[in-house]
Design a protein around this nucleic acid. Structure first.
Lengths: 199, 199
DNA sequence: TACAAAATTGACCGTCTAGTCTGTTATGTC
DNA sequence: GACATAACAGACTAGACGGTCAATTTTGTA
């Protein structure tokens, strides 16, 4: 049943490298030759494994989404109060981009580049934001249960507002806007959480 | 001194058409042939007048920025209270894109596409956001003077928060996220204005 | 009406693009 | 060790890309 020469690359490693390049440069501007060199893969192998350039891009975008959600989960489940870890998490975004990492958010970049011309991209983006806001909402509800936020708070709407504040922060980072200005957005988002509750 | 055949196109009209195409498609994906056809200009004329493709793009981006700031000014100087017109203005963004207009914001798209690889683009973007927030701040200060907002409000920071809420809204529109979700961001931004003042 | 200046036109250039094709190499199975 | 299977490697293709060149047309001025 199974035979043949085994592949000399790790799929996850290839995806990580593809994320790095597409995230930094975007889809259209990234040429196939540069892409192949960067992921360390032979031309034909890419077409065997991923179908074509777009296929690899979509897989990389999905992998990025999963990584980013996992990072959020990790940041929010530290061993302090839900409210504190949420605030820390939001503020931590203001310290990006980390050295060697591209600026901004690959999902945001993809949305802006493709608009509605690629249904798979828009679907991935919409699901990403839904999941992201959903996880924030869970932390808000935990904070309410712990008494750190008032019980009347609309956790769903506040979570969405926080999510979109992060979106804006990552656009600013993409354009190299000074960190202080990014931090302002983070702080306003945090202070805005309680506004529905009449704190 | 002056002689020669007069040009058969209006520069402003050419810029408007270039804005339309670059805004919808982005820079890289827009081919020169399609661009020339869309702006109704001969190949060589473009190079005579604008230098090259990038030159036209940068001029179009500047023109877009000016148009958008003029539209903000117009929306905010309607003949009602500063506070009401600001709220209306923010909420009005949730009803975009207008029929026939591209979704999202050309400045945001440009920032995401180019990142920091084009100094002129990032400079234009940063100045746009500064001017935008500056105009919002003026309205907030007017609202404070009218007694519609508390005197302790940090108008500068609130204006920046509003500006970046609009940024996020236009990213969502670019990805065809449902209008209700966009409206949520607008409402949260409005409600967040007063939070610094202990309303 | 001759001349100069500027805009237009269309052919043309080398380069790069995504993607294909063919042949070779390496491996597991029998 | 023969064979089937799959990955690797490199040459190749057709077309699109941004940009240039030379020739032509159209105008204002003298």
């Amino acid at each position: 049943m199974s035979a043949g020469r085994p592949r000399t690359f790790e799929e996850q490693e290839v995806l990580d490298r593809a994320i790095e390049l597409f995230w930094r440069q975007g889809y259209e501007v990234t040429g196939l030759s540069q892409l192949l060199e960067h992921i360390g893969m032979a031309r034909q192998s890419l077409y065997n494994v991923f179908g074509d350039k777009r296929g690899l891009y979509l897989k990389a975008l999905d992998a990025y989404s999963a990584q980013e959600l996992a990072r959020l989960e990790s940041n929010l489940s530290v061993n302090v109060s839900a409210y504190d870890s949420l605030c820390d998490c939001i503020l931590a975004y203001a310290d990006e981009p980390k050295m060697g990492k591209p600026a901004g958010c690959m999902i945001v970049n993809a949305s802006c580049e493709f608009g509605t011309t690629d249904a798979e991209v828009t679907s991935t983006a919409q699901q990403f934001w839904d999941h992201y806001a959903g996880r924030i909402q869970r932390s808000l509800e935990a904070a309410m249960a712990a008494g750190d936020l008032p019980p009347g708070l609309d956790a769903r709407r506040s979570a969405w507002a926080v999510t979109q504040a992060v979106t804006a922060m990552r656009v600013l980072q993409r354009a190299a806007v000074p960190k202080d200005r990014v931090r302002d957005v983070a702080n306003s988002a945090i202070e805005g959480i309680a506004v529905n509750a009449g704190f």
